[in-house]
Amino acid sequence: MKSKKIALFGLLIALAFVLSYIESLIPVFIAIPGVKLGLTNLVVLIALINFGKKEALFINVIRIILVGLSFGNAYSLLYSLAGGILSFAAMSLLLRKKTFSTLGISVAGGVCHNIGQIVVASFVLETGALVYYLPVLMISGTIAGVLVGILCGEIVKRLPPLND
């Protein structure tokens, strides 16, 4: 039971890691920092639904650190961490409410990820100018959240229960 869980976690972290890499290969057409698909949110959401808060947070933080060390720098790690934790908090809150489907949960996650990132970036760069990005980032986060949410709903439907 326990070793199965460890193996599954390893698998999920690896999956999130690969998705991060794939995402970095997808060109972004808008010249605004932070616009992205958020494919890794898929893994976090699936972990959240199948295991629970503690486990999903663990997977999320590990993959952020791994991805930050591999593809990013100290600042991008900081932004990701802020976005990842805020998005995680929002998603686990909505999941507990049980009145949202994966679509709504994913949208909340995507938008909060972008908000957390901008807030930390504003502190790091000591500028309020980044607030101009916020509306656009919220819209892009919503679109990304819808796509990831639909994907997640379909995947969860087909996956056997992971936590048995």
Binding site: T99, L103, G104, V107, V111, L134
Partner: peptide, 19 residues
């Protein structure tokens, strides 16, 4: 998709639009 999802999405889009 539930009704709340749509409300959430519309709310976010409205806030962004207002912003």
């Amino acid at each position: 998709m539930k009704k709340n999802d749509i409300i959430l999405i519309l709310t976010i889009l409205m806030i962004s639009g207002a912003g």
